[in-house]
Design a protein around this nucleic acid. Structure first.
Lengths: 334, 334
DNA sequence: CACAAAAATGAATACGTAACCATTTTCTTT
DNA sequence: AAAGAAAATGGTTACGTATTCATTTTTGTG
C-alpha cells in the first residue's frame, strides 16, 4: 500500500508537502508541485480516505436506509439520492432495511461516522428516534416521519388518501375498499385517515370488511384481495395505500382472472415511474411537483451537513390525481 | 466523540483492555469485562471503524458499480448484492455508473480501500480493466465481462439470443427484428451473435434494416421502433436485447396504439422479476437456475476476499425460454 | 509453600493523513 | 545591500484503533 510518505520520499520532499499538493496546491511552488505529481503518478498513489476521515472528523459518506427495491417507490428515490449525493462528492452506503435488522443498520451508520443519514424506515412512534437525535448526526426522513420529526420530506398523505376516494366517487363508485399498510407508519396512517375522512364526507360505508391494513407482504395482500373478492357486496374500486400495493393488487386481480379496469378499478398513491409504463398505466395520486421526495430530502440533508443550518425542514408536497387506465367510470355503462 | 480511551478511563482500565473486550472478550476476566461493558453503555460508545480500518488494513466494505435502476435487471441484482453483503457483515457503497463518470467511480472505490469491487459496467475492451487488475483488489463482474476477465458471472448470452429467435420461429414468425444495445458490451454482443446465428441457421433474412443496436436510451429505442414500424415489410416479432429494452419496446408499442402480442410479438432476455407481473407478462429468456447473477457474483466475491482463493471464477449459467404473454403463434390464426 | 506456567492486563507503537508551528527560502522595499 | 515581509517547506503531533511485547496477577503442581 503506497502512502503519502512513500510519495514524499520518492519526490524528495516532506509528507506535509505531499499533503499540500493534494489539498492546497496553491501554496506550493510549481516545480515542487510537478515533482510531487510525477511521483504520485509513477507510484500510482491514491490517498487513504480512512486516514483522512480520522483526522478531519468527517467522512464524505452518507448512509441511506431505504425500503426494499421491489417497492418501485424506493427504486426512484434510491436512484435520485445516490446520484445527487455522488455528484456532490459523497459516497452513499445503502442498506435495504427490514424490521429485524433495523438497529443493526443504525449501528453500522454510527460506527462509520457518516456525515449524515437519510432514511425512510422510521415508525411514527419509533424509539430509535431519540437515540438518533442524541447521536448528533444530521438526519432526515423522506416519505415517512416520526411523530417528533423536525426534518422530513413527505407528500400530503391525508390529502392523497382523500383524493383517491374522491376520484373513485366522481367515477360513480360507492363500494370503495382500502388496502393499505401498517398504521405504525406515518405514511399509511395518514393516507388511511384521508380515506376515512373522504368516505365519511361522501356518506359512504366504511365498514371494516372493506378495510385491510396489511403488512405489505405479497401473501397478506393476496389474502386481503381474496377476502374482498368473496364479499357478497364486492367493492367495485380499491384504493391501494401505495403504488407498490396497487401493483400487487393488480397482479392478484390478473391471477383471479379479473380485468382492470373493467371488473375492478384500482388507484395507487406515489406516482412512481413504473406506473407510467404502457402495460401498467396505473391511476395514482402523486406530488404536484416533478421532484422526487428522495431528491428533495438528499438536497436538504447535504445542505444541513455543509451549512450546519438547524432550522426545521418540514416539506409536505401537495398532491393531485394522475388519471390513467386502471380506473373507469361506472356511469357510462349504465 | 467518545473514544475507547474515554471508555478505558471511565472503567479504570487500559485502552488495550477495552479493545480486547470488543475483539477477544474470551481473553478478559469476567468482572473486568462487565466493568468495561458498563462504561461502554454509559458513555454510549461506538467504535470508529475508520481507525480500525487503518490499522487492520481492511475495511469491511464493498463497492458496487451498478447500472441504473430504471433497468429492472439492476433492481434485482442490487437487492441481492446489498442484502447478501450486509448479512455477511459488509457495507456496500453503491454507485450508478454512467459512462462519463466511470473512472471517477473507480477512484472513489480505490481511495476507500474497499475490500472488493463488484461491477457490471465493464466494456468488452475497457482500458480500465488492466488498471483494476494492477490495484490488486479482488473484483468480479456480473452480467458483463471484459475480454480478459478471469472472474465473472453471466448467463449464456449467445444461447439466449439464439433461443429468443428459436422461440419466435417455432411460433411461425419469419420477420424477426433485433433491438439490442452497444456491441462494446459483452452481453449485447453475444446475444446479438446468438440472434444472427439462429437467423442464419433457420435461413431467415438478417438484413440490416431489421437490426438496431441502440445506446439503450429511450429516445434511441423509440427511433428504432419508429423505423421498424414504417418498414414496408414490417416485422411481426422483435427480440429485445434485454428485458429492459423489451419493456421500452412494449411501451413504444402502446404509444403507437399497437396491441401486444396481437399486432406484435416481443421477447426479452434476463427474466427480471418485473417481467412476471400480471400486467406485463413478458416472454423472456433467462437463467435456468433461480439464483440471481448478482447473488452468485457477490457470493464469489466475498469468498475471494475471505479465503483469498485465486482460481478463476467463470460462471456461465444455462438459459431457457420463459413463455408468457407477449409472444403469440402466427400459426393458429391462419 | 514455593515455583513454574498460564492468564490477565498494560505500555508503547503503527496505521496514513491533515494541522499546527517552526524554519528556511524567496521576494520586496528602502 | 540589508532588513523585513511573504512565500514555501519541513518536523512533529493527533486522530482512534489493534497489535506487539512486557509486566503483573492468578492458577496449578509437587
Amino acid at each position: 500500500m503506497v502512502s503519502s510518505k512513500d510519495v514524499a520520499k520518492h519526490a524528495g520532499v516532506s509528507q506535509t508537502t505531499v499533503s499540500r499538493v493534494l489539498n492546497t496546491p496553491e501554496l506550493v511552488k510549481k516545480p515542487t508541485l510537478e515533482k510531487v505529481m510525477k511521483a504520485i503518478d509513477e507510484l500510482n498513489y491514491m490517498p487513504n480516505l480512512h486516514a483522512r476521515s480520522l483526522v478531519q472528523n468527517k467522512t464524505g459518506s452518507i448512509a441511506l436506509l431505504s425500503g426494499p427495491l421491489h417497492n418501485p417507490f424506493f427504486v426512484d428515490s434510491t436512484t435520485e439520492i445516490v446520484n445527487y449525493a455522488n455528484d456532490k462528492g459523497y459516497r452513499v452506503s445503502v442498506q435495504f432495511v427490514n424490521d429485524e435488522k433495523l438497529s443493526e443498520a443504525y449501528a453500522t451508520a454510527f460506527e462509520h461516522k457518516v456525515d449524515g443519514i437519510i432514511l425512510s424506515c422510521m415508525l411514527l412512534d419509533d424509539p430509535i428516534f431519540e437515540k438518533l437525535k442524541r447521536m448528533n448526526i444530521p438526519f432526515i426522513t423522506y416519505n415517512r416521519k416520526h411523530k417528533n420529526n423536525e426534518y422530513f420530506v413527505e407528500i400530503d398523505n391525508v390529502q392523497a388518501g382523500y383524493l383517491a376516494v374522491k376520484h373513485m366517487v366522481e367515477l360513480g363508485h360507492t363500494n370503495i375498499a382500502w388496502v393499505g399498510g401498517p398504521l405504525s407508519v406515518s405514511t399509511f396512517h395518514n393516507r388511511y385517515v384521508g380515506y376515512k375522512k373522504a368516505m365519511e364526507e361522501y356518506g359512504l360505508d366504511v365498514s371494516e370488511k372493506y378495510i385491510f391494513n396489511t403488512d405489505t407482504s405479497k401473501q397478506d395482500i393476496a389474502l386481503a384481495f381474496e377476502q374482498l373478492k368473496n364479499l357478497e357486496n364486492r367493492p367495485t374500486a380499491i384504493c391501494g395505500g401505495s403504488d407498490s400495493l396497487a401493483l400487487f393488487l393488480m397482479d392478484e386481480a390478473f391471477q383471479h382472472g379479473l380485468s382492470i379496469p373493467n371488473d375492478l378499478s384500482i388507484i395507487g398513491i406515489d406516482n412512481v415511474d413504473m406506473s407510467k409504463h404502457g402495460s401498467i398505466q396505473l391511476t395514482t395520486v402523486g406530488s404536484i411537483s416533478e421532484e422526487n421526495l428522495g431528491f428533495l430530502a438528499i438536497q436538504e440533508l447535504i445542505e444541513m451537513i455543509e451549512n450546519k443550518k438547524n432550522s426545521c425542514i418540514q416539506i409536505t408536497e401537495s398532491v393531485k390525481v394522475f388519471k390513467r387506465n386502471t380506473t373507469r367510470s361506472l356511469k357510462t355503462n349504465l
